[in-house]
Design a protein around this nucleic acid. Sequence first.
DNA 1: CATTATTTTATGTACTACAAAAGAAAGTAT
DNA 2: ATACTTTCTTTTGTAGTACATAAAATAATG
Lengths: 218, 218
Amino acid sequence: MADLVELRLREYLKKKSFRPGDALPKEQELADALGVSRNVVREALSRLRMLGMIDSRKKRGMILAEPDILGSFERVLDPLIMSKDTLHDLFELRLVLEMGLADLIYTRMREEDIEELQSIVDHEVYKVQKPFRVEHEIAFHGKLYRMTGNDTFIRFQSMLLPVFQYVVHYENSISGNTAVGKVTHRDLVEILRTGEPEDFRAGMKEHLQPHFDWLRKK
Amino acid sequence: MADLVELRLREYLKKKSFRPGDALPKEQELADALGVSRNVVREALSRLRMLGMIDSRKKRGMILAEPDILGSFERVLDPLIMSKDTLHDLFELRLVLEMGLADLIYTRMREEDIEELQSIVDHEVYKVQKPFRVEHEIAFHGKLYRMTGNDTFIRFQSMLLPVFQYVVHYENSISGNTAVGKVTHRDLVEILRTGEPEDFRAGMKEHLQPHFDWLRKK
DNA sequence: CATTATTTTATGTACTACAAAAGAAAGTAT
DNA sequence: ATACTTTCTTTTGTAGTACATAAAATAATG
């Protein structure tokens, strides 16, 4: 019944339209008000605390805080305990995100971003073993996400990294070698320099084409 | 220090490489092993239970379960307690998702999906007040997400709905009226029938153009 | 008036006790 | 001997008490 108390607390916070920084009633009062023991209230509060919705200090009581949207997400994103289906779903999600990035990137990118991307592809070493390949992928695509200037986005993508690695590994074990698209990272940088968002989307599609092919095969 | 215990439990589960369905040690044993009271262990367990990582039944003990990736997410996605910045980030995320959907949709869509989309646009009433407009948006774009056949995706989008409404409302309060793109839902359906993924992406871009313009203005 | 000491108060942790549920075991009847 | 019922037994779930700890509020002191 800690579930219920959690729900009640949530409703309470909503109803009273608390703003971040406001103080909450003390644990014992909440327990009395809800007709449960302080123990149960603490379990529920512990959950909200984990989600970053509240912050509690001794004596001062508890304060409503701005929840960290992605914090809770990170805790369950462990490829080891995810079903293969979910992993696959997240892999597709990542593909969709990369395909949709173009407009946001073009809206926000600066000259120095291009330079950094160029530097990243210049440091890429070809025909190396898998671990390094994955590193390159992360460096390049990670920079693309950062260029959106969207913090939630950036964190989201870094959370999806282990999932990505896992699926790439899985993909490898089937087809034997890492699939590489016709459009390289270097090509994408060139497109960013001279092309339009549509061109970049088309290039990214080519770059990711092996993954899309793999999807279709399944 | 429930934070710590939570972390420890998580490490423990990872180290022992438990599979869903396996039984966990009982609460008292965990408490003894970690050198804390059963109370603290319960707080940590309560968190994991909330995340869907474990499932506990009386007498039978606790079982490791497959976490519900998005369940925890839903709990904090309340526009009321989110900062304006985060809301904005999520709005952008939604735009990116819609722009990237094309390929997945084309890979999975069936004839009856088109029919349903057609039915949705046929029922749209023009020049109606805002609440209905939002309803149409949800019906149409929601169907697009469902056409991907990706459950995680579908749930993710339904979670983002309130965020979307909130931002649309905010957008309205600034520009005075709801911005509408040159490409309508009806046009998009037609593209799905006869066009290629690239055409759909271009159409979607036009459809969402007012939102992108709004982003640039900020 | 400033600074220090004391008190008060709310959270954090530990421990005990008991209710409830559900599997395990024992007992009984056909 | 098997099927059914009854009685343990065990483990989670809830309640309540006690005390440590930290920090704010208040009192005391120079």
